[in-house]
Structure formats: structure tokens, C-alpha cells
């Protein structure tokens, strides 16, 4: 079933789901939605499966012509959303009809918005995921970002009889200031006491070199004890590498799977999702917690994802 025709693609719009796991050993990055929580919420708002694929919209949204009557939900960073020129709210079920035009303004807060279609987006599974990995040229729509003229397909599923809305207290609020909880990294011992305290007490600014692969940060130099190279080993999203120049790099979901810089810390999973909303010039601060606490927070996060569909506000 054809759902959308792309009239304008926006800055960087890609198909993403929960990620491509189990292929790291082949050098294939995890990919998937940068703000996983928002994609999950969008899916729940139209009774999709948690891991269904949606559109990840970056900074400047696309313009889409609707080709079928269906339901959508839009979540993530705050963006003004218009259907046929009229404003509509985010974080709730929206009915759309054939002939409608969906358009977006600029992102007002955060960096990425998510558009989920009732039943999910139909693209081929590549290595167990529909996520687009642009650098590798696979997944999503022909392994690339959306272009004008593309057609987005969905599945024919029954339409919802009810509407859902995210309770206001559960809608994440994104500012220009992020606090990332981290645990010690595998090479924390390669940094001086001073270096570690600089890292944990400074504000770092996201530079223009920030994309789905990772964010280079600008700020006080983190001191290594001696060398700043290790024998390359595995990376995961959230890892914070510090190369010789002492400026941290946060590894994100499309990053290469191995790296040769020491990792001073690793961001906890729920906060990797939050960092998915950081954009150039935003400030990031790091707050260290013990692994035990990180695991408690991870359990709370899993519990929230599990219960989220029950917590939505229902209406006719």
C-alpha cells in the first residue's frame, strides 16, 4: 500500500527502526533511530509494534503527499507540524486522508522527529533490520536518505477505532543542555586524575562535526597519562573516545564498529537515546554513576518501554 509520495525530502530523512543487532562482528553498525524512545512512543501511539520502522526527520522536515487513508503519529524534538497548512499537535494519533499534504517547520527543540505510520513502513529487511545505513548503502529506501519522488509504502492494516495521546508528563522536553550519565570506560585508567576530573566537571559543546556516526565535542582538554592510542577494539553507541587532542567524541549509532582511541567513559543506554536529540552548539555535561545504578536506570527504562502503551491517554 502506497502511503506517501515525497514532495520535498527535508535535510536528512531516513527509514529507521530499533537497529541492526548481531552483525557487529562483521563490521556492520547498529544504526536505528537515534532517539529510540521517541520512535517507540510514535509506534505505541498508533498501536504498532515497538520495533516497527518509521521515518527519522533531521532538523528540517520533509513535505509529504498522502496517498492512502491511514493513521500516523509524530514524536521527538519539537517541530511545527502542518496538515494542509493547518497546525496539528505532536505526540498523538492523527488521521490522514488521501490527498493531504503533510509539512514541517524548523525544529524548535531537539534535532530529530519521528513519523510512524499505522502498521509500520514496508521496506526490505536487510540483516534483520529496516534501518538505513547511508554510509554502507543498505537498508531503508535503497540504502539512502529520502529523495523527491520517492514513494513510502506501508502495510494494509485495520484502522484504529480509538485515538491515543502521550500524557504531558511523559513527553520529553529537550533544551540546548544535555546531561549524560556515564559509567567508567574500559580505558579510564589511561587518563590522569586531572583528565578525568576535567571530563566530569566541564561543559562540552557539540561541534558541526556531529551526525549519526558520532559527535565531536569542543571544550577543555582531557589529559592522557601517556599515549592516546590503543590496539583497536569494539565500539558501541554511547562510548566516549578521547583522541590525542584531548577533545571527546561520543560514538553514535552509525559509527564504525571498532576504534583505536581510549574510551574514558560509556553513556548509559537511556541517555544515548536522549543524546540523539543533541545538535551542533548544544552543551553536554557528563555525570558519572556506578554500574549498579546504571543497571537500575536501565531496568526502569525497559519497564517504561514495556508499560508505555498502557500509560497513553485513550479517546474516541
Amino acid at each position: 500500500m502506497k502511503v506517501f509520495q515525497v514532495l520535498r525530502p527535508g535535510f536528512l530523512t531516513t527509514v529507521q527502526d530499533f537497529g541492526r543487532y548481531s552483525y557487529l562482528r562483521y563490521g556492520v553498525p547498529i544504526s536505528g533511530a537515534m532517539d529510540t524512545f521517541s520512535l517507540a512512543a510514535a509506534n505505541f501511539l498508533i498501536e504498532n509494534n515497538l520495533k516497527d520502522a518509521g521515518l527519522e526527520i533531521t532538523l528540517i522536515g520533509p513535505e509529504l503527499q498522502v496517498l492512502a487513508n491511514t493513521q500516523i503519529a509524530i514524536t521527538g524534538g519539537t517541530v511545527s507540524l502542518k496538515i494542509n497548512g493547518q497546525n496539528f499537535p505532536m505526540w498523538q494519533t492523527l488521521n490522514i486522508e488521501k490527498g493531504d499534504i503533510i509539512s514541517f517547520g524548523r525544529m524548535e527543540s531537539g534535532c530529530r522527529a519521528y513519523l510512524a505510520i499505522r502498521g509500520g513502513i514496508k521496506t526490505p529487511m536487510v540483516l534483520g533490520s529496516k534501518s538505513t545505513y547511508v554510509r554502507g548503502g543498505f537498508g531503508g529506501i535503497k540504502g539512502r536518505q529520502l529523495k523527491t519522488g520517492d514513494t513510502i509504502e506501508g502495510f494494509s492494516v485495520s484502522s484504529l477505532k480509538v485515538k491515543f495521546k502521550m500524557p504531558q508528563e511523559l513527553v520529553p522536553q529537550f533544551t540546548n543542555h544535555f546531561v549524560a550519565h556515564v559509567v567508567s570506560g574500559p580505558q579510564t585508567a589511561m587518563f590522569t586524575e586531572n583528565g578525568i576530573s576535567t571530563f566530569l566537571s566541564s561543559q562540552y559543546k557539540v561541534t558541526l562535526e556531529a551526525d549519526r556516526m558520532g559527535y565531536r565535542l569542543e571544550g577543555p582538554v582531557i589529559e592522557h597519562k601517556a599515549k592516546a592510542d590503543i590496539v583497536s577494539d569494539a565500539l558501541l553507541p554511547g562510548a566516549i573516545q578521547v583522541p590525542k587532542n584531548g577533545k571527546p567524541i561520543i560514538i553514535m549509532r552509525d559509527a564504525q564498529t571498532t576504534g583505536g582511541y581510549p574510551k574514558i567513559a560509556v553513556t548509559i543506554t537511556p541517555d544515548v537515546s536522549v543524546l540523539g536529540q543533541a545538535k551542533p552548539n548544544d552543551i553536554v555535561e557528563f555525570f558519572k554513576i556506578p554500574l549498579k545504578r546504571a543497571h537500575e536506570k536501565l531496568c526502569e527504562y525497559y519497564k517504561l518501554l514495556n508499560n508505555l502503551s498502557e500509560m497513553l491517554v485513550r479517546s474516541k
Binding site: Y21, L24, V231, D233, A234, C299, Y302
Partner: peptide
Amino acid sequence: VEETVPAYRSLLVRYDLRKINY
């Protein structure tokens, strides 16, 4: 155990906390 990543001199093991703890 979700997946493993062998590298030059180390092995990464990704696990699901809901099924096994550290």
C-alpha cells in the same frame, strides 16, 4: 548473550540485563 565482537586482543560480549546480570 546477544552477540560477541572479537577484535585484535579483546572480546566484547553484549548481554540482555533482563536475562542475565553482569
